[in-house]
Amino acid sequence: MFKSRIAFALTACSMLVSVGAQAHFQLVYTPDVNTGKAGDQDVKLIFWHPFENGHVMDMGEPQEFYVVNRGEKIDLKPSLNPITFHGSENEAKAYDAKLPLKRSGDYVMVIVPEPYYEESEDIYIQQITKSYVNRNEIPTDWMEAQGLKTEILPLNRPTNIVAGSTFTGRVLSEGKPAAGVEIEIEYMAAEPDMTANKPKEPTASPMPGGAIVAISDNNGYFTFGVPKAGFWGFAALGSGPDTEFQGKELSQDAVLWVRAYDVK
C-alpha cells in the first residue's frame, strides 16, 4: 500500500503489473453520472472491495465531504446519514448522502475520510476521493485540480469514457506531479443497490494475478486501456504528503472514479 520506488526511468506510457492483495477503495457512488434532472440525487459512501464483492470496512465520519460546481464549493456533510452496508462477507458502517443538482455543468464530489486502521498491516489508510456527475452535458469543472493534498487529475472527461479506449490521469501531491507512484485499478463489478444497502449481482470476476497496477511516469502521468463499460477506480497509493497518524504509518491515497460506456 505504499509509493513504489522506481530505480529506472519511466517512459510516457505507464507500466502495468499485478499485485496479489485485494484493493481497498473508497466509493462516492451514484448510479447516474449523466443527467438532465435538477434536484437531490442519492449518493452512497462505502469503503469496500467492489471488484471482489468482498470485505467492507467501517467508515468514520468524514473529515470533509463537499461538491464543486462552476468553481463554487458546497458543503455536503449536513446531508450525511449513517447506514449499515451489507456486503457479501460482512457488514460495515457507511453513509447515505444527497447531491443537490441545480445549475448545469460538472459536479465534482470530494471526500476526505477519517483514516481507517488496517490491523493486518498495522497502518492507517486515508483515501481522498473524487467522483463526478454532469448535468445537461455541459463541461465546467472536470479538468480542474481541486487543490487537495493529493489527487488524480483526469485528462479524459470522467463521465463518458469510451469502453475500448484509454484513460489518462495525472497524480498530484500538494499540486505537483508525483512520479513513481503505484496506482491500483479497480472495476466496480458489484454496484451498490441504492435501496437495499447491499451489492447487486457482480457483472465480472477479478482476473488471475491480483489487482491491476500502473506506475506514474516522471511527470505523474499514467494511461490505462479501459476494456469494459462501467465504473473504474484508480487509487494512487501513498501519494499524499502525510505519512503518520496517531503514531502509526499512514498511506494517504488519491482515488478517482470514472464511468465508461459501450458505443452503440
Rank of each mutant, 00 (worst) to 15 (best):
D106I: 14
R103H: 09
P115T: 12
S104C: 06
E118A: 12
D122M: 07
E121Q: 13
K98G: 08
Y117P: 03
V110W: 00
R103L: 10
V108Q: 04
I123Y: 01
V108I: 11
N136L: 09
V110P: 11
T150Y: 02
S104Q: 14
L155G: 05
N81P: 01
I83S: 00
Y117L: 14
S88E: 10
E89N: 09
E137Y: 07
N90V: 08
L101H: 03
K149R: 11
D141Y: 02
E121N: 10
D106S: 12
I138L: 11
Y132A: 12
T84I: 13
P100G: 08
K130D: 06
S79G: 14
T84N: 05
E137W: 05
P154Q: 05
P154D: 03
A94C: 09
L155H: 15
S104G: 13
P100L: 12
P115A: 07
K102F: 02
K98F: 01
Y107Q: 09
K102W: 04
E118V: 08
Y116E: 08
E151G: 11
A94W: 04
F85G: 07
E119K: 15
I152H: 11
N136W: 02
K98A: 12
N134E: 12
K102V: 13
P115R: 04
E114N: 11
E137N: 12
Y132Q: 07
R103T: 12
D106V: 08
S104N: 14
E144P: 01
A145S: 15
P82D: 00
G87D: 06
S104Y: 06
I125F: 00
E114Y: 07
G87L: 02
A145H: 02
M143R: 08
Q146S: 10
E119I: 10
I128S: 00
I123V: 10
E144Y: 06
Y132W: 15
N90A: 04
Q126V: 14
